[in-house]
């Protein structure tokens, strides 16, 4: 089985969007779920969140940041090429029904992962405040898309280059200080960002859902590589999550586990199998 890439588009210098033909995945996908892909027979299995889907067309969109060998190789795959494997949808959909006033927070690439949640909440009639944060204005993605589905959109940059300097936590604090009463906060992004959002919302007793992104292999619950500690219990993010109550996560353990293969990832980039000249042309 091979899966055809219908579209590839760079969103900023290191982030790209990829629309893949995968009708069975598209038929069932819901916000919060993810897929596992493998580029070719030498490839590793890597999870990516479903950023969008089109049930009619039978396509699923992922948004990828180039951070290592596999994402770099994937960035070389163009529209018309195929990738070997694209399995899903995996994990539980985010429970969004019944929420009235929600702050959806996306950090960096997490913005792309938060987008389908915000969109679904908007469709369900919730009042949605989207707060996204980037290092600088050149890295901002999905601004128009988010504007279309949010009641309020706040785009912050670390360096203030878009005129709105600060971290997402600063922006959330401002909203809370201004008297906004969120019944739920959804935070998606780097572990450290999610951790600090949770620390803030804990003070105000605002229920907070986070989307965990540990190392995964199969994504179906058969290896436990993605285990995290939630409320003192071991959970498998791929089948029990990926969303969890952010106030119960053992962040330190999660951050340390995220580094388990750091040295290998570096080696893979430097010495790994070269794919140049052998992408999978579909035709």
């Amino acid at each position: 089985m091979a899966y055809k890439v219908l579209k590839k588009e760079m969103l900023n210098p290191t982030v790209f969007l990829m629309e893949v033909e995968a009708p069975l995945v598209a038929r069932k996908a819901e916000p919060g779920q993810f897929i596992i892909l493998r580029i070719d027979e030498y490839g590793e299995r890597v999870p990516f969140t479903v950023a969008d889907f089109d049930r009619e067309k039978g396509t699923v969109t992922i948004i990828v940041q180039i951070v290592g060998k596999t994402t770099r190789d994937l960035s070389q795959v163009e529209a018309g090429d195929t990738i070997a494997d694209f399995a899903g949808p995996l994990g539980h959909p985010t429970p969004l029904e019944g929420l009235k006033k929600v702050a959806v927070i996306g950090g960096g690439l997490g913005t792309a992962i938060a987008y389908p949640q915000a969109k679904k909440l908007h469709e369900l009639g919730a009042d949605v405040t989207v707060i996204t944060g980037f290092r600088n204005k050149d890295l901002v993605i999905l601004e128009d898309e988010l504007k279309a589905i949010s009641n309020k959109l706040i785009v912050a940059t670390d360096d203030g280059s878009n005129g709105n300097q600060g971290f997402v936590t600063d922006m959330l604090q401002k909203e809370i200080d201004a008297g906004e009463k969120f019944d739920t906060v959804i935070a998606i992004g780097p572990l450290v960002m999610m951790k600090f959002v949770c620390k803030l919302t804990e003070k105000y007793d605002i229920p907070t859902l986070v989307s965990m992104n540990p190392v995964m292999i199969d994504g179906t619950g058969m290896c436990g590589g993605c285990r995290i500690i939630v409320g003192g219990e071991t959970k498998f993010a791929c089948v029990d999550g990926p969303d969890f109550d952010g106030h119960k996560i053992d962040w330190d353990s999660a951050m340390k586990r995220g580094k388990m293969f750091a040295d290998y990832e570096k080696r893979a980039c430097e010495e790994g199998h070269c794919r140049i000249g052998r992408t999978n042309r579909a035709d």
Binding site: G43, I217, D218, G224, I229, T234, K256, M260
Partner: peptide
């Protein structure tokens, strides 16, 4: 939960199915 602790399933899947014993020819460490 410490780094360096695997389930046998993870360890064997990385090695056998993903051919991790041939890293970095194969991508799975």
């Amino acid at each position: 939960s410490l780094n360096g602790v695997y389930s046998a399933n993870e360890f064997l899947t990385r090695i056998n199915l993903m051919k991790g014993y041939k890293f970095p020819e194969y991508d799975t460490p």
